[in-house]
Design a protein around this nucleic acid. Structure first.
Lengths: 132, 132
DNA sequence: CTTGACCCTGTAGTAACTACAGAGTTTATG
DNA sequence: CATAAACTCTGTAGTTACTACAGGGTCAAG
């Protein structure tokens, strides 16, 4: 059970690339790992889980600061989770707003893309952007 | 009709902030304007239109490089606009992909947000991120 | 013993701005 | 007319979350 990982093994296990792991360490999202005599980083299974937690958070669109808060909470299961709820709700609203913004773009772009003209003079896209 | 604008007036007229205008000039998206004797930039109405074109492009989610291409085309109405069509189509696909990604996040977040527990130990968000 | 696959640190680049600092200029007000 | 607010200038650094080297050291296989 006493598995340990080099940074490359951790990378594969958690699905996060090596440079990113070092970056997370630098910004304090991952605590500094043990070092072997050759100064290589060595990680344990807990690090894999922590990194997977981070990756899943990122996949849901949470920012680094938000994930740091969530990790803190995960480390202290006795604390109230209203902060996590708050984060999730705010983030959901952000996501929904982004979807709306993108759908508005989509609508305009769909109208433009039907353009069949040959020259820029009557290209719908150019016309749309240049209209007063 | 011979209106001229300081950078602040241009900013208000086009809805793009002053720092951004100077930034666009630096990266070559706007050509260097005339200068008054006090070294203040002075713009004409064409600059307003050009900047509005850029703003609309950005609002549709186009990148700076893409907008540079579109401006080139707008300046040469005799050229074929297949490049603009191509840009619009590619960009539309990107937007649609982003919408899909965000909708996937939305779905997961909506399930999480229904969480009614009091402590982090059984918070759905933390649980979701930490599940093996 | 050498080749290739790792690992290290540190710096710079990405996108598209935004935010100063520190200075000069112009305009409005008393 | 003085002065203060509002504007302009240049130049640099910060933002987000990484990614991409450069220039080295280390380790395992053949």
């Amino acid at each position: 059970m006493e598995e340990h990982y080099t940074i490359g093994a951790l990378s594969r296990a958690a699905g996060v690339n090596v440079e990113t792991i070092r970056y997370y360490e630098k910004i304090g999202l991952l605590k500094t790992p043990l070092r072997a005599s050759n100064s290589y980083r060595y990680y344990n299974h807990a690090a894999v889980q922590r990194l997977q937690f981070i990756r899943r958070g990122r996949e849901l669109g949470f920012g680094i600061a938000e994930i740091a808060t969530l990790l803190e909470l995960a480390d202290h299961p006795e604390r109230p989770c209203c902060e996590a709820d708050q984060l999730a709700q705010t983030h959901l609203r952000d996501v929904e707003q982004k979807i709306k913004d993108l759908q508005a773009m989509q609508l305009v772009l769909q109208q433009i893309v039907t353009c069949q003209s040959d020259i820029a003079a009557d290209c719908k896209l150019i016309e749309t952007l240049g209209s007063h």
